[in-house]
Design a binder for these strands. Structure first.
Length: 213
DNA sequence: CAGTCGATTCACT
DNA sequence: GTGAATCGACTGA
């Protein structure tokens, strides 16, 4: 029998812990995204931790800028960035305010509103691919820079909320190097995923771009 | 102010 | 497996 997911929103205290503690604890939690067309829900299956100014792989490594401003703010808020000229990726800010750490939401299983997600992910060949990868996840949930800074712990702001869900037991959590992270940032096993879950994205090492001209 | 590159995805060979 | 797509942020001069 399958346990019923707990629909209680996660409190801010949940996110106000070291990012390496929060990241694996997010697996199995449920993200609720309320769009104009209706709600979409996603069960998190893969995440990555980024630890602020100490972490060469983090956007916060070189200090506070207009783009990463939200990372330096209070935990429990959403940091969304735009990359490769086409895609958005979303994070949840962790740790004490000013630490600038965050968890990248890399993949999940759509558990509600799949018909809405399919409309936004026309290239997906099956439902397991709807949110398999960080940019796919953001696309499926209709997340872009407009949601940057959204408080995911505020019940009065339903745009994006994280519910308690059904956390997975620690022996179901695997870890390894982060995907696509360059240089020193790639050495840490700060990617976490649920063992044998079909919605987890494949690992890829960082690929430096070839020179043009 | 020009050059470089990205926490990626997709189409194609 | 390989290369293109596509643009804003950041860097260094």
């Amino acid at each position: 029998m399958i346990a019923t997911p707990d629909r209680t929103p996660l409190a801010r205290e949940f996110f106000d812990r070291p990012v390496l503690e929060v990241a694996p604890d997010l697996l199995g939690r449920v993200l609720v995204r309320v769009t104009p067309d209706g709600p979409i829900e996603l069960r998190l299956t893969e995440v990555e931790a980024y630890d602020g100014a100490n972490d060469p792989g983090s956007h916060a490594y070189r200090g506070r800028t207009a783009r990463n401003d939200v990372m330096f703010g209070p935990p429990g808020h959403v940091y969304v960035y735009f990359t490769y000229g086409m895609w958005h990726c979303m994070n949840l800010v962790c740790g004490p305010e000013g630490r600038a750490s965050a968890v990248l939401l890399r993949a999940g299983e759509i558990t509600e509103g799949a018909e809405l997600a399919r409309k936004r992910r026309l290239s997906a060949r099956n439902d397991k691919e709807l949110a398999k990868g960080p940019a796919r996840l953001a696309t499926a949930l209709d997340v872009d820079r407009a949601l940057d800074g959204t408080d995911a712990c505020a019940p009065d702001d339903p745009a994006l909320t994280v519910l308690t869900g059904t956390p997975v037991s620690p022996d179901q959590v695997l870890s390894g190097p982060r995907t696509g992270v360059a240089g020193d940032g790639g050495v840490h096993p700060w990617r976490f995923w649920i063992a044998n879950d079909p919605t987890v994205s494949p690992y890829r090492a960082h690929a430096p771009r070839r020179r043009s001209t």
